[in-house]
Amino acid sequence: MAGFFSRLKQGLTRSTQKLNAALTHRYLDETALEELEDELIAADLGPAVAGRVIDGFRSSRFGRNVTTEEIQEALAAEIAHVLSPVAVPFELKPEHKPHVVLVVGVNGVGKTTTIGKMAKWFRDQGRSVMMVAGDTFRAAAVEQLQVWGERTGAPVIAGKPGGDAAGLAFEGIKRAREAGTDLLFVDTAGRLHNKGALMEELAKIIRVMRKFDETAPHSVLLVLDATTGQNAMEQVRVFRELVNVTGLIVTKLDGSARGGIVVALADAFKLPVHLVGVGEQVEDLRPFSAQDYARGLVGQSGGDLANRLVEGSDPEAGQEERGSAPG
C-alpha cells in the first residue's frame, strides 16, 4: 500500500504548490483566509463549499499566530471531516450470484478502463467475473472491453454495434447466473446527463435486468473524472435521480487536477466514494481514504513538505498570477 499512498499523494500534491504559497502566511489574518479560500476554489471545491470550509476555520483560528503545519493540519482535518462519511469501501455481496454492477457516467470519464481494473482486482482475489460490453454506440468500445477480458480472463458478453444494451445486460445476468459467476460488470455508453432520451435508455437497461433478477443491479457506480469542475454536481444529481447511483469512483487523480470537487460532492450528496483512479496501470485503482485525500488536497505529504514550502514560498507568490491573461 505504501506505493499507492505515495502515488496518490504525488498525484494530489503535485499541483498544490499554489496552496502552499497561501499557507506560508504565518499570521492568519483576513487576507490570508481569503487567499486560502481562493486556493480551495482553484482546487475545484467550488465557491460555496470553499467559503464554508474557511468559515469553519475562521471561527476557531482567526487571528492566531500559527505555523504552516498547524494551518495545514487543521485545514486537512476540516476537509477530512467532510469526506469521512463517504469513504465507504466497495464490497462484494456474496448473497447475490452474480452481484450485478452497472457502471455509468458521461463520455470519456474512464468507465471501461475502471471496469477492466476492477475485474482484474477481483480476479486476483479469486473471484469469477463476467463483463457486458454495453457500450454499443462508440466505435470499438466493445473491442476495448474485450482486450480487458483477455487481460483478466473474464468472459465478455458482446453484441452487434448499435445493438440493444438492455438485451445484452439481460443476457449477461442469465449467463452469469448459469455459470455461478460472483460478479457481473455492465459497461454502458457514455452519455451526457442532460440528454433525456439517453438517460431513459439507462433506466430501460435496469428495467430489463430486473425481469431476470428483481434485486439487480446491486450497485450502480457513477464514474467521475477528477478534472471535471462544478458540472460534476449536476452529473451526480441527475444520474442519482434517474438511475439511483449507489457509489462514486473518481478517476484521473494522477493528473494536475486536485479533485476538490469530491469535497463539494460529499458535502452535497453524501454518496459513498468507493475507489479512486491514480494511474493507468491495473493496480492504480485504490480504495478512497478521507484522510489521505484531504492531506493530499492541502499538500500535507510528510517529510519533503518543509523543503517545498521553503522553495515554494518566494517564487510561488509570482506564480499565482502566472496564468492570467496575456492581454
Partner: peptide
C-alpha cells in the same frame, strides 16, 4: 472537455 474545472 467543456466540463473541465479549474485544472483547465
Amino acid at each position: 472537455d467543456a466540463m473541465t474545472g479549474q485544472d483547465a
